[in-house]
Design a protein around this nucleic acid. Sequence first.
RNA 1: GGAGAGGUGGCCGAGUGGUUGAAGGCGCACGCUUGGAAAGCGUGUUUACGGGAAACUGUAACGAGGGUUCGAAUCCCUCUCUCUCCGCCA
Length: 426
Amino acid sequence: MHDLSFFRGHLDVAAERLRTRGVELDLASFRQLDSERRSAITESETLKAERNSLSQEVGKRKKAGEDTEALQAQVRQMADRMTALDERVKVLDAQFQEILVAIPNLPHESVPVGRSADENVEVRREGTAAAMDFKPKPHWDLGADLGILDFDRAAKITGARFAVYMGLGAKLERALINFMLDTHTSEHGYTEVLPPFMANSASLFGTGQLPKFAEDLFKIEKTDYYLIPTAEVPVTNLYRDETLDADALPAKFCAYTPCFRSEAGSYGRDVRGIIRQHQFQKVELVKFARPDQSYDELEKLTHDAENILRKLGLPFRTMALCTGDMGFSSAKTYDIEVWLPGLGEFKEISSCSNFEAFQARRASIRCKSGKKSEFAHTLNGSGLAVGRTWVAVVENYQQADGSIVVPEALRVYLNAERISATGRLI
RNA sequence: GGAGAGGUGGCCGAGUGGUUGAAGGCGCACGCUUGGAAAGCGUGUUUACGGGAAACUGUAACGAGGGUUCGAAUCCCUCUCUCUCCGCCA
């Protein structure tokens, strides 16, 4: 959400930068609404100031034993006008809120201008794909052949877009989670958090999923709780309505959680395999930073996420998203894309963003050094999407005989060097 | 689920209708004092929105939302969270 007074002061600049995201602001009605709101507030507050002083007068005279009926009647007469004005301000505020809340964040000046994913800019590429003298299989075939993935039974238990991991498949998922958490906590300095997997509407508003993207969420019936779509929600909201000590920043957290997404509007996309599921596992990185350090921290956070792929020996490229492809709340985003030989393409495995004060303003997260209090900057990125990393390991390390060689870094976690079809399940 | 007790400023803690945005204390900041420090003394110390170039000033906020009243932190209603006891439970 944007700051009203900043927005008002820099309306033309803001509109210009939003245009690069394909968002057109109606400046005339913005200004009209703003001035109407301000004059209503001024009138209402003037009346209230008068009421307050008259009421005090009533108190004084009553103490002195004088009759105050006339004064009281006078204030009573003001009530209607005041109520009407307050109603009006309320309506205008709600309209403003509706407008402000629906405006995406302003892109940082370093973000390449573009309309779609085609205009994203590759900033680096690392690793080389393993040479394969056979036709690499997609992970759903590998998963079925090895007996480590079962979609049919998942559909029976729940429905489409769910998966059951079996045997070493399940253990590989767990190994990846532990490997990621261990790496981020012991090598990158993040503090591990295990948050609730449900969050209330205030939290979802704070990080920007609500009100605009309600249809992407699963809501628990008869409650105000939602299944979290990412750990970003509970972890960022750790400090909602709090003021942090600026000297203690950046604060860095990592959290493993399952993530739940309705995937409304994605029908027909990535229908096969586990690329796009209603439930997936993710290790998330979240940072709270001072405004002056947040862009450095974005570079570091992206590097930390990439490090998981480096350690696993998986080839990837990192893309700076262009203005037209960025998420609603983000000021700058890097996507990390891993090479998937079975699918024959690079696939997003992490999205690292600096939200600047956009979320902090919604969630009221401040930082303070000395007397100065300002909104903190929040950042987050996947570190990494576990399911997609599972896919990348399986597809990149597949052998001609259909088995999977376990990457060096994971062997201690999996307690195995190879996943073969020997233990075929019933 | 049942019964009870509570939610006041960075923290502790007064305050049951009238200059109370809120006593007092702690903490913090600045100043005085000191050779230096401690103690002591003094001043200051929330946020949002409006007006103002600024100094400053108005309105609102005592868990949240409604209500009563000339006037509400104080009275009434609803919700929410915390704590204690009982029940249930991994």
